[in-house]
Design a protein around this nucleic acid. Structure first.
Length: 218
DNA sequence: TTGTGTTTTACGACCTCC
DNA sequence: GGAGGTCGTAAAACACAA
């Protein structure tokens, strides 16, 4: 049967038929499944229906051709107006209700697949964002360590030169925490080291104190 | 052969639009 | 009110491993 004749020019884009030979099915297992079924059933019961051993007539499997034509029509237009439904039903030897149900189920499958793809895309973006965050946190730690070493070096040089802190200039001073490494970057009590201002390079002291993740102190 | 998981067909309930 | 939509679900059809 000629495809153009089957659907009418108003319902089917001939591009789909042109691609029909290589049209990719949704998945390989489905194609394999249909092939095996066709081989077993010998292509149906002669009325365009495939029923296994007198199965429930209310649950009739569509033939490959019927399914394929419905698929092509679906790709043309996902909504099913009355005219097209009646036309497809007549041409395929189906009940219009079956055509409607097939389209409903097909839309559901399409939506499910779309959601799956969207989920995968968002998950990929999320994972990438997490990775980037980790890199940034590592960079912060590296810079903080560098700052601490520099401050210690300054303190050492001052001590060597006999300069002692007098607490005069607190504005813009860099906080260097004494004691254990655990308290080095905490917001706990800190000594002020006047005369050294890293604020122009590193920003306000508070910013430095806020960037360290909690797990660093665990 | 059978148990199990997946896909397809069908239906009912409910919603929206004309 | 009727037609067609989505959503959730049942059950048949099917594939496949054990």
């Amino acid at each position: 049967m000629d495809n153009q004749q089957l659907f009418g020019s108003s319902y089917v884009d001939t591009r789909f038929f042109a691609a029909n030979g290589t049209a990719q099915r949704e998945s390989q297992p489905k194609a394999r499944r249909r092939r095996r079924r066709a081989a077993r059933c010998g292509g149906g019961d002669g009325n365009g229906w495939e029923m296994d051993g007198g199965g429930d007539p209310k649950k009739r499997r569509l033939t490959d051709e019927q399914a394929e034509m419905l698929e092509l029509s679906f790709r043309e237009e996902r909504k099913l107006e009355t005219g097209r439904k009646v036309y497809l039903a007549a041409e395929l030897g189906l009940d219009p209700k079956q055509v409607a149900v097939w389209f409903q189920n097909r839309r559901a499958r399409h939506k499910s697949k779309t959601l799956e793809q969207e989920f995968a895309r968002l998950k990929h973006a999320h994972d990438a964002a997490i990775l980037h965050k980790c890199h940034l946190e590592n960079e912060v730690l590296r810079l903080k360590e560098k700052l601490r070493a520099t401050a210690e070096e300054v303190q050492r040089l001052r001590s060597a030169a006999g300069i002692h802190a007098n607490g005069g200039d607190s504005a813009g001073a860099v906080s260097v925490c004494g004691g254990s490494p655990g308290s080095s970057f905490s917001t706990g009590t800190c000594q002020q080291h006047p005369g050294f201002s890293g604020a122009d390079v590193l920003g306000r002291d508070d910013d430095l104190m806020m960037c360290v993740p909690e797990w660093f102190f665990a």
